[in-house]
Amino acid sequence: MASVDSLTFDLTDCKLVRHAETERIWVNADRVAHRLTFDQGVIYWPFDLTDPNAAQVFYRQECEQNRGVMLEMYPAPIAGVEGLAGVFKYRSPAPGSRGMAYIGILWLPFQDCRFQVNVEAVEQGNTGMREAAVMVIEGDKWPMDPQAEIPVINNQEELDAMHAKALGRPLRRLPSDDAKCDASFPQHPLSLVRAGLARVIATAQLAPDARGLLPHRISR
């Protein structure tokens, strides 16, 4: 019978920090977390992977409802098994932080169970450096919020108020979020998440007890 141990992948340099019946969590030296979960039972997806466009619409909307933004989504088959992968951006959950949290996810959905691998990293310390550097390169191509006039900041309180207002705005996919920027910022959390997710997809293997599972399908 399939279990959380039926899916394995490369975890070089990762340390196990949680071992539960249906969950494993590892963290590496770059503070990138790898979380594997195994859900038994029929999954909630209102689509299946014969319709990748429906998957994109569903997760784009779900991400926006959680005040995030979907950066990308693509099919990710594992040894002939249907898979789906995506990368998402949210605001950091750390109180007072202006940084971002990045999550890469691999789903392997079956008729009666699902494997999910999250690769997660949070921006810490100096934030916004990737965005600032790419903004200089992009120049006028960088998307700007429409405003009647350039704001004048007279003191720290006004600056804090401006940042607080910005935190309430919906997140957007920026030019600096593009995968082509990862090589220039290899230690950025987004680059680390993409690299970690790619490694999971490239090395993932299913044990024999999971190879006979039927793919997830919905009635049409």
Rank of each mutant, 00 (worst) to 15 (best):
A2W: 08
S3Q: 12
S3Y: 07
S6D: 13
L11G: 05
T12A: 15
L16I: 01
V17W: 13
V17G: 14
H19Y: 09
A20C: 07
E21I: 06
T22S: 13
R24S: 09
W26V: 01
V27F: 00
V27P: 02
N28Q: 12
N28I: 06
R31M: 13
V32E: 10
A33M: 08
R35Q: 12
L36K: 04
L36S: 03
T37P: 07
F38M: 05
D39H: 15
G41I: 05
I43G: 14
Y44W: 12
Y44K: 13
Y44D: 14
Y44R: 14
W45E: 08
L49P: 00
T50K: 12
D51I: 12
A55I: 03
Q56L: 12
Q56E: 14
V57L: 04
F58W: 09
R67K: 15
G68R: 01
V69N: 01
L71V: 09
L71N: 07
E72F: 05
M73Q: 15
M73I: 12
Y74M: 12
Y74I: 07
Y74L: 12
P77D: 14
P77A: 15
I78L: 06
A79I: 05
A79H: 08
E82T: 06
G83M: 05
G83W: 03
L84D: 08
F88Y: 06
P93F: 09
R98V: 11
G99K: 01
G99V: 02
Y102W: 09
I103G: 11
G104I: 00
I105R: 07
I105F: 01
C113V: 11
F115C: 00
V117Q: 02
V117S: 07
E120L: 15
E120D: 14
E120A: 14
V122Q: 06
E123F: 02
E123I: 01
E123G: 01
Q124S: 14
Q124M: 10
N126Y: 12
T127Y: 02
G128I: 04
M129G: 11
R130D: 07
E131M: 07
A132E: 06
A133K: 10
M135C: 06
I137A: 14
E138D: 08
G139F: 01
G139W: 03
K141C: 08
K141E: 10
K141N: 11
K141D: 10
K141T: 08
P143L: 11
D145T: 11
V152G: 09
V152Y: 11
N154S: 13
L159F: 15
A161E: 10
A161L: 09
M162P: 01
A164H: 05
A166E: 10
A166T: 07
G168I: 00
P170E: 03
R172A: 09
L174K: 03
P175L: 00
P175G: 02
S176A: 10
D178T: 10
D182R: 05
A183E: 15
A183F: 10
F185R: 03
F185P: 04
P189D: 06
S191Q: 13
L192P: 05
R194G: 00
A195C: 02
L197E: 05
R199E: 12
V200P: 04
A202E: 00
T203V: 13
T203I: 11
A204N: 02
L206W: 00
P208V: 04
D209M: 06
G212W: 04
P215N: 01
P215A: 02
R217L: 03
R217Y: 01
R220C: 08
